[in-house]
């Protein structure tokens, strides 16, 4: 069977967001795993309850891990590497989640007059949470 190819359709917004959902989902799993493993490498041994593990995984930030009894928590977590890491996790998490909300809403409303209005609202919510997340991460 010979290889058959066709020119790919021009990238539609739906295609780009569908691809982004997959990439961001995988990226969140990978980044979360890195954060969790690094928490253990840095000496986290206590308070292994679910909320703490979730904080180590998705909020690698001295504000969140200070009660985990990691020795020298501010030296371990409060540096540019973890700040960038957390900004990336926050960006993927907020975008992935709000895009999911957009898809669910548009499943129901289609492209009526509500579509641009709700898309705009979701974009504003996305912008607000992203700016807030970056502010909190850099200020902590």
């Amino acid at each position: 069977m010979r290889n058959r190819t066709v020119p790919q359709p021009a990238m539609s917004f739906e295609y780009i967001m569908w691809m982004f959902t997959r990439i961001s989902g995988l990226a969140l799993l990978f980044l979360g795993a890195v954060s969790l493993v690094m928490a253990f490498v840095m000496g986290a041994r206590e308070l292994l309850d679910m909320p703490t593990l979730a904080r180590w995984t998705f909020f690698p930030n001295p504000n969140h891990v200070v009660n985990s009894k990691i020795p020298d928590v501010t030296q371990g977590w409060a540096n540019a590497y973890w700040q960038i890491m957390q900004i990336v996790i926050a960006f993927f998490g907020i975008s992935h989640g709000l895009n999911g909300l957009r898809v669910i809403i548009e499943d129901y409303i289609g492209n009526t007059i509500w579509q641009p209005m709700l898309r705009g609202l979701i974009f504003l919510v996305w912008l607000f949470f992203t700016i807030m997340a970056v502010f909190v991460i850099l200020a902590s």
Partner: peptide, 23 residues
């Protein structure tokens, strides 16, 4: 393999109400 309109159909299905409404 005999058809030549695959690209056109993929364009139609990548629309907002095409395959991406399948969850």
């Amino acid at each position: 393999s005999r058809d030549r309109a695959g690209a056109e159909r993929l364009r139609i299905l990548s629309d907002q109400f095409g395959v991406y409404r399948c969850h």
